[in-house]
């Protein structure tokens, strides 16, 4: 793919990222961080291609497989832990049922 096009996409995504996150209340900083952390596990896509490619090199397969394992931990752990945290944020009414 055209390299300039890739750089173009990168630049636009950077501006989009700034716009998206600029006004998040401080309460949500941790879930936002762990949620975006899970997204950084997108490198799993590269890991899958590396692990599955047939280049007759055991090194690529080993590195790719290790990358798949690590990226999967990042993705699965990140999303689940974020969901667990967000499940605990309660409004006043629902928080009172323990009384």
């Amino acid at each position: 793919m055209d390299l300039i096009l890739l750089l173009f996409i990168f630049t636009l995504a950077a501006f989009l990222g700034f716009e998206l996150i600029a006004k998040v209340p401080s309460q949500l900083h941790t879930p936002l961080m762990s949620g975006s952390n899970a997204i950084s596990g997108i490198t799993i896509v590269g890991a899958i291609i590396a692990a599955g490619v047939d280049d007759n090199s055991w090194l690529t397969t080993v590195l790719g497989t290790a990358a798949v394992v690590l990226a999967t931990i990042n993705v699965v752990g990140g999303y689940l832990v974020t969901d667990r945290m967000l499940g605990m944020f309660k409004k006043k009414d629902s928080g009172k049922e323990t009384k």
Binding site: M1, L6, I9, F10, A13, A14, L16, G17, F18, L20, I21, A22, H29, L32, M33, S36, N37, I39, S40, I42, T43, V45, G46, I49
Partner: peptide, 23 residues
């Protein structure tokens, strides 16, 4: 993403990168 010329890695990685910078 740039190494393997993959759009979704670039977009997602960049979103995380900028949100981290803001925080």
């Amino acid at each position: 993403g740039f190494v393997i010329a993959n759009n979704v890695l670039i977009v997602a990685g960049c979103l995380v990168g900028t949100s981290g910078v803001i925080l």
